[in-house]
Design a protein around this nucleic acid. Structure first.
Lengths: 135, 135
DNA sequence: TTCACTGCAAAACGTTTGCAAACAG
DNA sequence: CTGTTTGCAAACGTTTTGCAGTGAA
């Protein structure tokens, strides 16, 4: 029953730390394969499966945030607090932002859908500053 | 340049019609594999790939609506107008609803994210009426 | 010694593709 | 005939799994 490094679940191994470091070190929202590429630079022996294990571990531990979109690859975000996403339809760039109407929004959505609300997820699709016509 | 049955793109073949009929005939949001199962009851010779082709065709033609969630299978919705979704975390049920604050919401989100808004997608996660503790 | 974790390879899953044959205009 | 669509099988990208081997308490 003796606990190790992390809060409860398990150990923050070298591999998991490398994965965490990659995610924390990036402005972007990386995919598992991008994380694998970068993690193996820190720890050449790391395997793809271990990256996946680590991502699951870190997600469960609340240390990173998984963003699932469409049918493509999940992306991982160092920002773990509640926030929304904007996805560029031109270049695929994914940006975090926060809408503080969400408490209100969740109540309205719950009423309309007759669900007991747990969380609300909002995604804006459009053109990012770099891709839109004018400045 | 002579057009056929559909608006512009192509023909509404027997296969595409079967797929459309399955989607229109269901209250649920079916996956491609569920659609395949049901479509082959209408048209036993239909193939999986043709179901995918048809879904792509119908989606492009605006006759059905594709809902992509997480990394799982896309679901297809006969409701093509703008609307939001509620996803049950217990049983996976997906329900449509409409929030009419969305025009306002889109403006705010665009301002916050600095994106040029195209569309906004809102998903409520929680417990559906059947799964939540009390009535 | 024990138990969690790793690395590898294979499988699983949803989806897409290449291509020959069938079909409609 | 010509172009489109079909059906099949094989390929694809992402994720999961089985399992033997490693490593830290």
């Amino acid at each position: 029953m003796t606990k190790s490094t992390a809060e409860q679940g398990g150990t923050l191994t070298r591999q998991r730390e490398a994965v965490l470091q990659v995610i924390r070190g990036s402005e972007e929202h990386l995919t598992a394969s991008e994380i694998f590429e970068q993690a193996r630079r820190l720890l050449p022996s790391i395997s793809y499966a271990t990256v996946y294990n680590s991502l699951k571990f870190l997600t469960n531990a609340g240390m990173v945030h998984e963003v699932k979109f469409g049918n493509g690859a999940s992306r991982y975000d160092r920002e773990t607090g509640r926030h929304d996403h904007a996805l560029c339809t031109e270049c695929g760039k994914l940006v975090d932002f926060d809408l503080d109407l969400t408490a209100e929004l969740m109540r309205t959505a719950a009423r309309r859908s007759h669900f007991k609300a747990e969380s609300i997820h909002l995604t804006l699709r459009g053109l990012c500053p770099d891709c839109r016509p004018a400045g």
